[in-house]
Design a protein around this nucleic acid. Sequence first.
RNA 1: GCGCGGAUAGCUCAGUUGGUAGAGCACCUGGUUUACACCCAGGUUGUCGGGGGUUCGAGCCCCUCUCCGCGCACCA
Length: 906
Amino acid sequence: MPDPATEDISKAYEPTAVEEKWYARWLDANAFHGNENAPDSQPPYSIVIPPPNVTGVLHLGHVLNNTIQDILARRARQKGQAVLWLPGTDHAGIATQAVVERELKKHEKLTRHDLGREKFLERVWEWKDEKGGTIIKQLKRLGCSCDWSRERFTMDPEYIKWVQHVFVDLFEKGLIYRGKRMVNWCPKTLTAISDEEVIPTPQKSKLYYMRYAVAGEANRFVEIATTRPETLMGDTGVAVNPNDKRYGDLVGKKAVRPFPEAEIPIVADDHIDPEFGTGVLKVTPAHDKADYDIGLRANLEVIDVLHPDGRINCPDCPDLDGLDRFEARDKAVEKLESMGLLDKIEDYENNVGFSERGHVPIEPRLSMQWFLKYPSVKEATNAVANNDIVMRPDRWRKTYLHWMENIQDWCISRQLWWGHRVPVWYQKDKAEDLKNAESLDSSHAADLHVSTDPPADPENWVQDDDVLDTWFSSWLWPFATMTNVGERSDTLKKFYPTTDLVTGPDIIFFWVARMIMAGFEYEKELPFKNVFFTALIRDIQGRKMSKSLGNSPDPLDLIAKYGADGLRFGLMRIAPLGTDVRFDEKQIEEGRNFANKLWNAARYRQMVGRDVPGAPQSGDDPSPAGDLSIYDLDILAKLDDLADNLETAYTNYRFNDVGQHLYEFFWSNYCDWYLEAVKNDFKPEADPNRKATTLAVMDTVLRRFLQHLHPYMPHITEELWEKMSYGASDDFLMLTSAETTPATPTDAPANAREHVDAVYQSARVLRNLKAEYNVAANKNIRFIIPALDSAPWAETELPTLALLTGAKEIATDSSFEADKGTPSALTPIGQVFMPLEGLIDVEAEKKRLNNELAKVEKEFSKAQAKLENPNFVERAKPEAVDKARADLASWTEKRDQLNAMIASLH
RNA sequence: GCGCGGAUAGCUCAGUUGGUAGAGCACCUGGUUUACACCCAGGUUGUCGGGGGUUCGAGCCCCUCUCCGCGCACCA
């Protein structure tokens, strides 16, 4: 049965319906639209979303990341800026292709090769249209205020043109070339990957010590330590350090590779570390980058003994041929042992590079790939070095600069089907030669068709099979989403460069650095002014969240339980600047509780404000009329402090501070103190004018607080904005410019806050006293104050103090003579007695006061010792000394008063 | 090996020019007072990772060590 007084606002806040309702309304009203034609009086604020993989599903990292972006966007709107938050998804080459291949295998038992390239790509597009973009729906549920009318995909037709244009341009500039190089090969996904996609992973391996015979010298062997005996068939040399005296005479001789048996040269190379293993290295140029370089220097043969999928390719060793590389390892060791060439095996921990997507050790492999020599490196380095682009936390700047200073060419080709196909065609009759050429660059342009358009006579040309690294499209994201090739759209003019980029530090090289270079190269300008790197979310035990550990809560479950606002608020309050955060569902629960607290505070305002003539209802910001009480002035001043604190916190991107300030102001200052202090104003006998003024103050606080809170909790604030009629009808809170004039009247008496502090502090002391005597629940208690000498102003505040302490009355009585042992306490407004039948116990009271005195004495001594230190008085800052003196005076006074109180008990 | 973070109450974390250690949660006690039990009031809790130094004074600055995390290099 609903209480008739509260029927229009339910008792507990139910977020789901409210949140879905408002999101739909915002969409209907086109409230997220980024207006590229906004006048100059509305300065631009823009963010491009880090495009999630089109296969992606929302996880907590996304929630954190996108909540921050939404907060920034909503805050900018409240400041009257023209805001564009541009969303979209990434085609995610390997990930998406893998998903579709998996489905194909599962449901139709087919591989992509069974379908062929064209048919397979059709399937991928079908999958993308049907199932891709789940994450977009989830971002909407979170409340993200993206301009969905501008949603982009990295394989939109216009986006494809950008990628091709950039490829052609860089090729013509001589920065893109093709060459046979050692690359990181993923035997699982069967493609080359970039250095950044290799994850060094510590492994418990073995170090095998084996012997190669020295050719022509009976019974002479070199001992070699290796972790990869399975590649020995590809050995084409043995190397030692030229300064290693142990082996000096061997250089120039030959060693015998056991299988397939062959004599291979022993060479000298500086790269060899004499300290490692035996100081002798078997050189396998086809399967190790360092070996490849040694081979080049010593002119050694290159023998590839692996298939692309990691199986052994060595018909001369039938017992190994076709085996997986790790099976072959055991088998090779077995063979060596049977030949008497294996000396020992040691446990050994080393780092093995794993493929980021394939999750298997990569294989260094010599292959023909496209590479990019990065453009605009200097501009991109300087922009960050001199803080034109500000990275937060600052330490990532160093990481970035270090990478830029040691930048390596980027392997941009991938042996996949799903992606941007390399826009290069070979003349049909020369195709084989060109494809196998040692290198290929713009000097071969005559035999190539490198263009954004296919050749006019396609029958005479063959297109390159490779597609481009996904990041080769992502790096264009800030401008390629805003304008077409060869144009400067109004959107670009208004919103580029973007203001903030919010992303994880894990993609600083993959994405952030490359976007900066592309921005300078193609728009002659930095792509964003600020980069905010988010924290990494870990579980409560500090482990990374991962699917396999199953320790990653589904954000949608959390939203269902706590509401999107609760999730957002809870997460933001624990997300510190730049360090990892341990996720604890308790925090999200607090977020929900906070929403509920707000809900009920608004409900309370509705209840007490009903049917009050003259109570402010709606419209623009009326300053509270009538005589403001000290409590009114105090909360309004704290409201103004809140605005300042929030501004500072936002300026420094201290999102957890923002959350903390919002929480503390509302829960503690407003609800726990102000609302409790003014409850007398709503009693039937209260002065109607006083009541109206209090309601007006409550409205000012609530109205402004809803504005302040809106970026963190957009849905509930919008709901209450409407329910409380704080805006004109049809006006969204989200599009209402925040009020910035101080809420505190300019003629506010300066001592109001001090007086309120004194009252609140007194309330704390008296509550404490009641609790100590176990009468906390007793509402019939009367407090007596014999004298208000030091705080005569407090006389009028005693009813409020009584209210706050749950006492029946607090009376002044100069003739009051306490019986010895009457409980009493020292408050900022004087000594207060709590006379109660049956509670007079001189000894107990003496003991209690002595405890109190001991604490005061301790503080007193500290303060005194400080001031007795001549060095402090002479050398400390004057403010510090003044403060210390004031402290000492205050402790002295308290001590004396307590002593007097104790003395009176004798 | 080089570099960067972190170590503060049982837990998660604040602590911004060095000047009396904080919040929330948890826990304990009491409480349905005209919003809220997703609540209210009160209480307990710290050799601020170890050691050394600078200073009148160090959680904060310097050195060093230990542990955890991250990046880069090496990785036969």
